[in-house]
Write a protein that binds this DNA or RNA. Structure first.
Lengths: 331, 331
DNA sequence: TTGTAGGCGTTATCAA
DNA sequence: TTGATAACGCCTACAA
């Protein structure tokens, strides 16, 4: 059995409250007894029980980061940013893998609701069923949303302007003298970010070209990307440039183009998403619509810590702007 | 303020113990009062405080998975396996990003030692300084090691036979009629797994060819892999096949070879590590020395749950065997 | 079947 | 400067 504060008090021959004060650097303890107690604490390897501390202080100093997808190559950077901010404020960060499942999300939010964590940052992706969130929201404000929009709720949110991603992509591919017909290749079309990108892209391309745009959906894996190319080139007048939102799929598409003996970007142009290591390992390196994820993550963490320290809160929704980072898959 | 068990008792006009029994399906409550209490619990949205429960029961039903590297493309599978086993037994899993840092590792082990988690599985990679572990180990047995060997300690461990990986790799590349000189390209040479692979590879290649083997170390990133190729080909008699342990680097190497106008596997053969999505996106697809990570992870989780449920424990070290999975980068 | 009371390990409030 | 003592919210003998 581990040594407790009570044990320490007994050994030192003082009251528990004195030990507590000494260990927590609170005033009202003579230097003499404090030193004595600290010495004993080290000697007996005393480790305060965090459950008891949490219960007494109504605070665990742990925040959770709920992630829908562990394979997303941009998340390590996002996680590091959150950890940086949190650690600086004395919080530990744990990661929870929701795998995009409403049930798993609910299970982790349950831990929040039941005081295991002080707060959570929920990272978007698949929408996870607002009712769980609503339930968790009812009386506390200890959640921040990152790249997820839940219309029913008013939580502090940090999100990229996905619509603008679509607009930027269309303009980049279409707004030049020698622009060529472009297609849009989406992942899971039900996701918020994809519907937004689609709208932005379609609207901008209509404005620029006046003609309709082909859209392919459900292209998520590398293999999906590989396959879609052959569906595309059998058209009479195939599009010659692609805005493909999933980078793994972009790799597959790139591979398919090259295996068909075509050149990138001379024959086909490619535009992907987010400057992460996947975009970097593409050859040629992907041109991407980049998101300021690091900044967003830091700010989300700051938002959460603010929620936890203060009481007031006008849930703020902050929108971030994407930008193009040129690689070698576009002209 | 959330409603507590005490509140519920007051509302129902019964004792706290009765409420507790009713909610926990314990015997000794009339069906009538039980139903009444359950109804109230729902009505008032009662959520037991986990800190209090944990304190009373000395158990949180949470295990932590300490990961040294969030970019490792094999980890999502590993994590899913652990979660599967744990969830089936009523445990929740949280992920902790140690980033290979002894300090961060220590911080998370501190949470374990201080009752925030019931147990941890520590996934190898960079060795993290045995003294932290020793400290945490002293009186409890609630840790399991996965692909990490700490000689000073005797903890239940599940690890791949890295030495055999080296042997298999050498045999696969060298043990044929038309075998060609091979080189070994390692990542962080200080890591346990790399030293083992090196020994196995060198020993086997000495046995098979009788000649010395070139070794390159510190080749971790995609760019490292790209660069190392040019260091290699300027040799008079460059090796013609490579066992390269880091898959990101393997991608770079592959790229460099192709950019030099050479063919894979005709001119150069490549052997990587682990069948994961990185190996899959290589083109041609990488031949790899594969590790039964999924099985190892499940077993590690089972080990931990056993530790937590029983008291007895002969810390068992279980070694798993790698095998070659043929891709298209070898003949 | 139910209630009382003590304990889990801290922190915090009040007297002394 | 110190020490009782009551929280914090739940569980669990033991007694009624």
């Amino acid at each position: 059995m581990a040594v407790t504060l009570k044990d320490l008090a007994r050994i030192a021959g003082v009251a528990e409250s004195t030990v507590s004060r000494a260990l927590n650097d609170k005033p009202g303890v003579s230097e003499e007894t404090r030193e004595e107690i600290l010495k004993l604490a080290v000697e007996y390897n005393y480790q305060p029980n965090r459950l008891a501390q949490g219960l007494a202080k109504q605070k665990t100093s742990i925040i959770a980061l709920l992630l829908p997808d562990l394979k997303n190559p941009s998340y390590p950077e996002l996680i590091a940013a959150v950890e940086g901010v949190a650690n600086d404020s004395g919080y530990q960060v744990v990661l929870c893998n929701t795998a995009g499942s409403p049930e798993k999300t609910a299970a982790y939010l349950d831990l929040l609701q039941r005081n295991q964590f002080d707060g959570v940052i929920i990272v978007g992706g698949t929408p996870t069923g607002g009712k769980f969130l609503q339930l968790a929201l009812e009386n506390k404000n200890n959640m921040v949303l990152l790249n997820m929009l839940l219309e029913e709720l008013l939580l502090p949110s940090h999100l990229i302007d996905y619509r603008q991603e679509g607009v930027l992509a269309a303009e980049y591919l279409l707004d030049s003298a020698d622009s060529r017909p472009a297609a849009l290749i989406l992942g899971d079309a039900r996701e918020y970010r994809e519907t937004e990108r689609r709208e932005g892209f379609l609207e901008a391309s209509r404005r620029l070209t006046g003609s309709a745009t082909e859209v392919f959906t459900g292209v998520e894996s590398r293999d999906d990307g590989y396959q879609v190319f052959f569906r595309i080139v059998e058209r009479l007048e195939p599009p010659l440039s692609f805005y493909i939102t999933e980078n793994l799929a972009a790799l597959g598409l790139l591979e398919a183009i090259k295996s068909g003996g075509y050149l990138v970007p001379e024959d086909f142009q490619l535009l992907g998403t987010g400057s992460n290591f996947i975009a970097g390992i593409a050859s040629p390196q992907l041109t991407v619509v980049d998101e300021p994820l690091r900044e967003m993550a830091s700010n989300a963490a700051t938002s959460l810590l603010q929620l936890l320290s203060e009481d007031k809160s006008e849930p703020e929704i902050r929108v971030y702007q994407p930008k193009i980072i040129a690689g070698a898959t576009t002209l």
